[in-house]
Nucleic acid binder design. Structure first.
Lengths: 134, 134
DNA sequence: ATAAGTGTACTATACACAGTAATACACACA
DNA sequence: TGTGTGTATTACTGTGTATAGTACACTTAT
């Protein structure tokens, strides 16, 4: 598995791993029940510390996205149920608001942002996107 | 000036100050040419270090949003011109993509996000919203 | 001139966290 | 038994935030 990591980014490496694996699952490149690379293997290919990979896997498991079986490996969860965590939704809205403000100062209006969102939806969310009938 | 700061947030205090002042300007609570509180005054009311306020002001000036006059004070820029910085736009799109992914795992679709964006636009962007002729 | 108020610069310190490194442990499976 | 899993622990380094204190340059009003 090859991920795009930026050591100079301000977002921690383990968080970048979390983000990109979630994206791979959304894109259905990683399928339910599929086995992920071992901690040591992935740390080898990504040239990062095993502890960093472990931290990413633990965070993904905490979110219910992957499951780990001691001695066997880590696997994509069979069914990923979207959790309507109110706390996280509030944080997301706050983040969206901040993003809108930054966009405003770049001369980008909300309609353009919505258009981009729609593109991302078509590009990534081919799964439960209710798009089959379109 | 009263801002809502969260010392336990992972975003630095000076960055929170930057964000909230940008929002106040968008809301037209802070008007062009208006004087901002002095570094020492704001650090007093916010109970933070003057250096932290100074860092926020310097970042705002770097973005062309405020202007500082030595010995006189800091003021909101007379005209804030949206700069179409390609680099920043790319970062914004990346951030929006990540936000969409997180939303997907919370069961929120792109249409809901667009609706929220529209709300923010009406709530905040009453200024140069090209809404005069519409 | 003098004083007060402005932003700025500099050094030092404390603290938290990311990341690395090395090691050891518990479990599954052939 | 041996190899490959994930996990836990400890120590160390580096980076960045924030605080604290001090000093400087400038503007304005007295």
């Amino acid at each position: 598995m090859i991920l795009n990591l930026d050591p100079r980014s301000n977002t921690p490496i383990w968080e970048q791993v979390v983000h990109q694996i979630k994206e791979l699952i959304l894109r259905e490149i990683l399928l339910p029940e599929e086995k992920l690379p071992s901690v040591r293997e992935l740390s080898g290919t990504l040239l990062i510390n095993p502890n960093t990979v472990s931290k990413a896997y633990q965070e993904l498991e905490r979110q219910g996205i992957i499951e780990t079986l001691r001695g066997k490996g880590t696997f994509v969860s069979a069914s990923i149920i979207p959790k309507a965590d109110d706390q996280k939704i509030m944080e997301l809205k706050q983040q969206l608001k901040q993003l809108f403000i930054e966009a405003s100062y770049l001369g980008i209006d909300h309609q353009t942002l919505s258009k981009w969102l729609k593109n991302y939806s078509e590009e990534l969310g081919g799964k439960d996107n209710h798009a089959e009938s379109e």
